[in-house]
Nucleic acid binder design. Structure first.
Lengths: 348, 348
DNA sequence: CTTTAGCACTCCGGGGGGCAGAGTGCTAAA
DNA sequence: TTTAGCACTCTGCCCCCCGGAGTGCTAAAG
């Protein structure tokens, strides 16, 4: 059943108002804001809306509060898709001028920026490929007991570390090792890497094997870490400013959930760049009476990252959605610039 | 003026009790715990202790609460230096089995571990050298428009990144560049690096200069970032469990301070590994009614890192101090293992 | 001189009761 | 169908009261 235009208007006013005041909104206030009709009329309409499940009444003789169903309608149809003001776009771009080399740190930086921009807690994740692979290895000798391992992974990410070797190596051994690494340990899953390591075990001298396995296990570790979608959260303290989280226990519970949850935070659908989850629409119990807005951005090399915002159900969906999209676009652009053109990448 | 033995005993009981209950402690409770004397006697002593400034009374007819001065005496003399139980040592070592390559991430990991171990918020910092310098450069060509820059810095830290070059380069150019970098841009401050860059400007072909400056500016950036003592905090939510921070505003204030403060958190004296700052002893206003316990650990290459714990003045100093020292020792050991022996390092 | 018991006093915190304000539902009239 | 009017309801807040915990003081005992 469709709502009349006026009912929708009223619902919109209720949501708009409640979003900002966090207090049940009464018929008089609505009438004042709509003009043309009296509060009594509004009251009749309100009664209907409650009946239909779009609004709720904390108790008789209090104003109305939107129900999840009401928010849903609001988000789907009523909400005025906000455009970012020039000023805001400017600010977003500015805060994305982060000179960060490492992806992870860039994310936590961006997370903080988003959080302070929307005034809600955020979480970010670089959705790594399910399985990262090494593209290329290099070894840079430092002395006869240590060398720098450089590994290039999918998506042109580079990792390197000084490795203290378990035994002395002649300088001329390094090129051989590098060759072996590049020919046998690139472009395969970490699982396969371990298997191949076993396979070559009896084909090369034991010392060489020792070194090789040290390097390979470093590589495997790094790859798995990079592939593992780590979620970093920021700005959890913003919660404390909201009336619904003035209760320390509640705030603590949600904060702990955010800090601990590694996998179970909402992600957007594959086909749409923005997803809004309202209250009970969330699967995690801890989020049952909060809302989540989550956007995704492209990292190139068909990887996607995501930014999410967690807030009360009366979150300012329009603003948050607009700003979040702004950031997501900014990040997509940022990565587009950093990455090599994909053509170059495939030609090997 | 020295306190009598009994006064000290009483003070100790008051602090011990208050630390755990967060409620003013009364004469009866003290008498019960001490035995031998009646509550009336205790009351006389308490009055003296208030007079002398070691205790405070929230209001007439409430129990007593330790004053900062009281805590100070407690920490200096009364507190039983706790030994870590085997179990605890075990746990600390376990949580330090972090397989992290990057210093920064290791720190935030360790910070989280400490926080969950002492149940207070923590902050950590790797006190980088005031000015990091590059020790060695390598360039690994990827194609004619990009290469991997590898830079080794003080303390055997290695950074690398894929750099998209502003113009095409012949393969044979790279060795020349590397030479130039290693001969002119290592072991000098970033300031000097920029100056040298200017100096060579007219001695090499313009294209080469363009590349060089791109690489050098990446290096400068990385060095400055690595040298900058970044402070990372963890476990701020622990605050919410404490009765003194059930007030959302207070908690929010302190959390914001922790999140924002980059430089003004307490550091231990150079000569001692552990420092305890009680309430007003803190210089930052935001910490005036909290206490801080901070420990330092060695990273080798005469760099030091620090771990701090922030809590209410009635923090459990004995336990926190013991556990924090345990972590600091663990970290010192951890880095000792990772670093190369310093001898090797200086021989170049 | 110190310790103890006794006692009056103070103050906090929690549990009613009352009251104003905001908002509703209903009815009757436009 | 809309509106005005009115009685009704419920919350939040203030105030008051009261019990409990703890103190300070005094006077007696060791």
């Amino acid at each position: 059943m469709e709502l009349t235009e006026r009912k929708k208007q009223i619902l919109k006013v209720v949501v708009d108002d409640y979003i900002h005041t966090a207090e049940p909104v009464g018929s008089k206030a609505i009438a004042a804001r709509m003009g043309g009709v009296s509060s009594a009329t509004i009251r009749n309409e309100l009664a209907d809306l409650v009946e239909l499940g779009y609004l709720e009444q904390p108790h008789t003789s209090a104003g109305r509060v939107p129900s999840p169903k009401g928010y849903r309608l609001y988000v789907n149809e009523l909400m005025e898709r906000q455009k970012l003001s020039l000023d805001e776009t400017e600010k977003i771009n500015q805060s994305l001028q982060l000179k960060m080399e490492e992806l992870d740190r860039l994310l936590s930086q961006a997370g903080r920026a988003v959080s302070s921009f929307v005034n809600y807690p955020t979480y970010m994740a670089a959705a790594g490929k399910k399985s990262m692979t090494a593209q290329r290895f290099e070894l840079l000798p430092v002395d006869d007991r240590s060398c720098i391992v450089v590994m290039m992974m999918d998506g042109n990410r580079v990792k390197s570390q000084l490795l203290r070797l378990q035994l002395k190596v002649e300088m001329d051994q390094f090129p051989i090792l590098v060759n072996l690494l590049n020919s046998h340990f690139t472009k395969i899953s970490t699982k396969e890497m371990n298997m191949r390591l076993m396979n070559v075990a009896d084909q090369i001298p034991p010392q060489a094997f020792l070194l090789l396995s040290q390097i390979v296990s470093y590589a495997v570790e790094s790859l798995e870490e990079a592939g593992h979608r780590e979620i970093v959260t920021a700005g959890a303290r913003e919660l404390l400013k909201l009336p619904e989280f003035r209760d320390a226990d509640k705030a603590h519970e949600l904060m702990s959930f955010l800090a601990d949850s590694k996998e179970n935070l909402p992600v957007p659908e594959d086909d749409s760049p923005l997803k809004i989850l309202i209250g009970p629409e969330n699967v995690s119990d801890a989020l049952k009476d909060t809302s989540v807005v989550v956007a995704s951005y492209d990292i190139g090399d068909d990887m996607r990252g995501l930014i999410g915002v967690v807030g009360p159900t009366r979150m300012d969906y329009a603003t948050v959605a607009a700003r979040l999209s702004g950031f997501a676009d900014g990040l997509t652009r940022l990565f587009g610039k950093q990455e090599l053109p994909p053509k170059e990448d495939t030609k090997e």
